[in-house]
Design a protein around this nucleic acid. Structure first.
Lengths: 110, 110
DNA sequence: GAGTCAGATAAGTGTATGCTTATGTTTCTT
DNA sequence: AAGAAACATAAGCATACACTTATCTGACTC
């Protein structure tokens, strides 16, 4: 069981280590869209985008939904949940004062 | 200001993309210790450890405290805070409760 | 002061990674 | 049925990265 988590954890951090993929993820967080729409204003080739999306998919940071010949992408909460889980392990070290962090903590505490 | 955050963000995800560095960080989260103590049971050369610690330091995931000829390392809350901040941006996508996390883990267990 | 110990840095090397061009696959249009 | 559009995949290449061995720096001991 934890082996799976470790693999996923590795995939996630690997995926987020690339600035282009973080930008793609951020764009998808604002609104789900297909790969072509994602490319707009991003100076990235079609194969490169496809490869990045594959990495994000493997990390469960993003999920696809086929719609005819389009593939709509959106944020997959599972990946974010795993990051939250990883972060929660080190909760003892978070600075207590930052308001945003308090919100974070409260939400994860439920 | 936000430029600094972006740089730091990149350093952090790059740093955590390596499994050895995640292991080092995890060990330090359990207890602060010097570089030699960190190496114990880790099958890693002295220069490699030193290089990994430099990366973690740059990412502000870890901080050093010289003590004579020893250098004691410990978790730096600043790095964790930046991850929490990053994660907070996507709070809208988190599974509503921890139960969802448990479901995820169970699913991954198959 | 000489030797030793903890750790950092330098330089070189094999592999991983992100890109490119080319091509494949599926769906839609006409 | 033929072409085009939306993606995915394959193969090749240049760079980044994590490791190695060798050397350097600074602090402690004798």
């Amino acid at each position: 069981m934890y082996a799976y988590v470790s693999f996923m954890e590795h995939d996630i951090f690997k995926a987020l280590a690339d600035p282009t993929r973080r930008a793609i993820f951020e764009k998808l967080a604002a609104a789900g869209m297909n790969a072509s729409a994602l490319r707009e204003g991003m100076a990235i080739s079609q194969p490169a985008m496809s490869q990045h999306l594959a990495v994000l998919r493997t990390a469960r940071l993003v999920r696809e939904e086929r719609q005819g010949r389009f593939v709509n992408y959106e944020v997959d909460p599972d990946g974010l949940a795993l990051i939250a889980q990883w972060l929660a392990k080190y909760r003892a070290y978070w600075p207590a004062r930052i308001d945003a962090l308090k919100d974070l903590l409260r939400d994860m505490d439920q």
